[in-house]
Simulated assay, not measured.
Amino acid sequence: MSGLFKFDFYTRDWISGTRELSDRARGVYVDLLVRMYDLGRPLDYDESDLCRFLGNPPWK
């Protein structure tokens, strides 16, 4: 099994670090963080792959 089962989440850092993001941007951000930890590595910058993971095919 790859990735981690859990990771530390600091609420104060989350609140102060995402305060200016929209609700949608915060959702995308946390989804990408979770994906990165699940894979156990940084995400590749592949727009098509990231869009598919987020449920938004790039051709939409």
Rank of each mutant, 00 (worst) to 15 (best):
I15L: 15
E47T: 04
L39G: 09
K6A: 00
W59E: 14
V28P: 01
F5R: 03
F9V: 07
D8V: 09
W59L: 02
N56D: 12
L4T: 05
P58D: 04
M1W: 02
E20Q: 12
K60M: 10
S2P: 12
S22P: 06
F9I: 08
E47Q: 14
D13F: 12
R35D: 06
A25E: 15
T11D: 09
G17D: 02
T18P: 04
L4G: 01
S2M: 08
D44Q: 08
D8P: 05
G27S: 07
C51R: 06
D46T: 01
S16C: 07
E20C: 06
V34A: 13
D13L: 13
R24V: 13
T11P: 07
R19M: 08
L43N: 05
T11Y: 06
M1E: 09
F5C: 03
Y29I: 07
G27Y: 02
N56Q: 10
P57F: 12
E20D: 13
D49I: 00
F5S: 03
D49K: 14
Y45Q: 09
T18Y: 10
V30Q: 14
D49N: 01
T11M: 10
G55A: 13
D23S: 11
C51Y: 08
Y29G: 04
Y29M: 10
G17V: 11
S16P: 01
E47V: 01
L54Q: 05
G55I: 09
S2F: 11
R19T: 07
D31N: 15
M36A: 14
P58H: 03
L50S: 00
D23C: 09
G27E: 12
D46V: 10
R41N: 12
V30M: 15
R12M: 13
R41W: 09
G17Y: 05
G55D: 09
S22V: 06
C51H: 07
R19Q: 11
M1T: 11
W59A: 04
G40S: 02
L21E: 10
